[in-house]
Amino acid sequence: MEPSVLSSLDIAGAWVSIALTLGIFSFLYADNPVYKLAEHLFLGISIGISMTEMYYGVVRPNLIDKLAAGNVLSVVPLVMCAMLFARLASKKLGWLARIPIAFIVAAYAGVKLTGEANGNLMTQVAQSMPNLAELWRDHGIWDWSADGAGVFSGIFLVVGLSACLLHFYFSARQGPTMRGISRFGVLVLMLSFGASFGYTVMGRISLAIGRAQELLGLDKPAEEAAQIHPQLASVVCGVLVIAFLVVWRLRGGGAEQEEAA
């Protein structure tokens, strides 16, 4: 296999990518102009990408192509889209925007009404009833080799779920029994929130490791890294960002934030 030769645009892109990464990371020092520039660039680009993908993924296949094919029904969403923009044309016609909004809200409310009841409510309840006999036969009380599966976990799931639900049940007077169950529900919720937090932290840290790998060129094949020189790019961009921050600080930048803090 021949080593891939990167174009100058790709090499420039990799340098821009490193510069922007360091620009965002400069926020760790303070809210500064380099970060703000990268942040606003991100805003503009992400909105532009969303709009483009929305057009080619939704509007074109579902509306424009169908209209071009002579589908008369597609005139209805076109008219409703026009109604949505009525407020821009005249304030008097602004109320017309309520019609497409009413349509979209009603359509999704109707779908959710049955979909949530059927898909979430009934399915979640049904899946929360473990077959204890089967669990006992396959795993006993607690089976380390199956990540703690067993009768204990089955009962814990049902009791924990019921306790959590009772914790959110405010229509009954909170007597000592209810308070006890509710407290157990809170403990189960805390375990879940802690686990979710840990999971999120690890996800973010793996993203941070990914960025560090890009800065060091470890995420690319060796022949591509040899053409891009990511470590050199990181040092050059890092020095430029730091030099800018020093000049910005010497010229009184960030004083407002310090006062506000």
């Binding site: 409510l121 703690g148 976990s153």
Partner: peptide, 30 residues
């Protein structure tokens, strides 16, 4: 085990609550 049992128990409770809320809100909208 934490992810599969206590976490699922709490998440299902939240989902069931949200589903009840969605049903009630959907009905109110309609």
């Amino acid at each position: 085990w934490i992810m599969d049992v206590p976490n699922i128990a709490a998440r299902r409770a939240i989902f069931i609550g949200a589903a009840l809320g969605a049903v009630a809100t959907g009905l109110r909208v309609i």
